[in-house]
């Protein structure tokens, strides 16, 4: 559906050239919800804009439906853009136009008649769940409602691709979830390919199936979201994901534990086995859970537990051996010198 072939974008500054996107190649399938993560300045926003040519490329090709779009100009370009909707972090609705007028703008400038446009506006406002807000100005809408209007504007013209530039970064956690859910529902319902760039890993975890990681303009890793979060390969990815996988136990607690502190990472089906109670009953060891969480990515569990087995030294050693056998990753953080 969308294919980047050796895409580069550089900006000539006064003396130097800044390469925002550096020889990036990958493709995004039809109907997929694809994420691109990276820290700010990684070039993800620039890369996204090469799809609808808000940004030209300095090298390589961008294929949409097998056609190189980088040379599109004038009428062809406008036709291409009509097939691609885009939403933004700050919604970018015209403040002096009502929700209805904002959406109708797309249709009217595409030559759709007034009545048909009106019907479409109503249809799409209902689709995004705010049919009653048609005649309201953006300043009277909440952030989530503004993004809903923006989604309606992006899709009302019949776009088959939705580009999302940090769509939830200006929203609170609850609204973020509802917007992501809406995007995911619409993607399925209308068969739309979605490309989301974000720096929020939660966004990727909640709705994407595959994800590309960018750093310094380069593509450093691309994988299914579950594998990316559970088994990152690239150093940058590890660092990026690491933030969500380290514990925040106070040092005081660690200092006052007797026996080892062990980090257990459960992947996939492991997470469904009751290993803690199993170990406890089998070896007569007390297992104290210090912190932990289980999350579901693509409906597959990823569990991380920090535990502190308490008991005779040999019992603790037996427990550790057992855990190493049944749990995907076992890491002993503190060897229990405190005993």
């Amino acid at each position: 559906m969308i294919e980047f072939q050796n895409v580069s974008v550089s900006f000539r500054q006064k003396r130097t050239t800044l390469t925002a996107v550096d020889d990036v190649s990958f493709s995004i399938g039809k109907g997929e919800i694809f994420g691109i993560v990276g820290s700010s300045g990684a070039g993800k926003s620039t890369l996204l804009r090469t799809i609808n040519l808000l940004q030209g490329v300095t090298g390589g090709r961008v294929l949409v439906d097998g056609k190189d779009v980088t040379k599109y100009r004038g009428k062809t370009l406008r036709g291409h853009r009509r097939n691609i909707g885009m939403i933004f972090q700050h919604f970018n609705l015209a403040d002096n136009l009502t929700a209805r007028q904002n959406i109708a703008f797309v249709l009217r400038s595409a030559g759709v008649g007034r009545e048909e446009a009106d019907a479409k506006v109503r249809e799409y406002l209902s689709l995004v769940g705010i049919p009653e807000k048609a005649d309201v100005y953006p300043s009277k809408l909440s952030g989530g409602q503004k993004q809903r209007v923006a989604i309606a504007r992006a899709l009302a013209g019949g776009a088959k691709i939705l580009l999302c530039d940090e769509p939830t970064s200006a929203l609170d956690a609850e609204t973020t979830l509802s917007i992501l859910k809406l995007i995911s529902t619409l993607s399925k319902q209308l068969g739309i390919t979605v490309v989301i760039i974000t720096h929020e890993l939660n966004v990727i975890k909640s709705i994407c199936s595959r994800c590309a990681v960018m750093d310094g303009g380069k593509l450093v890793e691309l994988d299914g979201v579950y594998s990316l979060f559970t088994q990152p390969k690239d150093g940058f990815t590890k660092q990026l994901i690491g933030h969500t996988r380290t514990h925040d136990l106070p040092q005081e607690i660690l200092d006052n534990t007797y026996g080892p502190v062990v980090k257990l990472t459960f992947l996939g089906p492991d997470a469904n086995t009751p290993v803690i109670s199993e170990a406890s009953s089998r070896f007569g060891v007390q297992i104290n859970i210090l912190t932990g969480r289980i999350e579901y990515i693509e409906n597959k569990p990823l569990g991380i537990l920090y535990v502190n087995p308490i008991g005779e030294e040999y019992v603790v050693r037996q427990t550790l051996d057992y855990l190493k056998n049944v749990v995907r990753e076992v890491e002993v953080l503190e060897d229990g010198a405190g005993i």
Binding site: R78, G85, M86, A94, F105, S109
Partner: peptide, 23 residues
């Protein structure tokens, strides 16, 4: 951003000027 969003919809430059920029 508002102008960019309007351009991204495939509207002509004239349309963006008349229907978005001026209001």
């Amino acid at each position: 951003g508002v102008i960019e969003a309007a351009v991204s919809t495939g509207a002509s430059k004239w349309s963006v000027v008349a229907r978005i920029l001026l209001p």
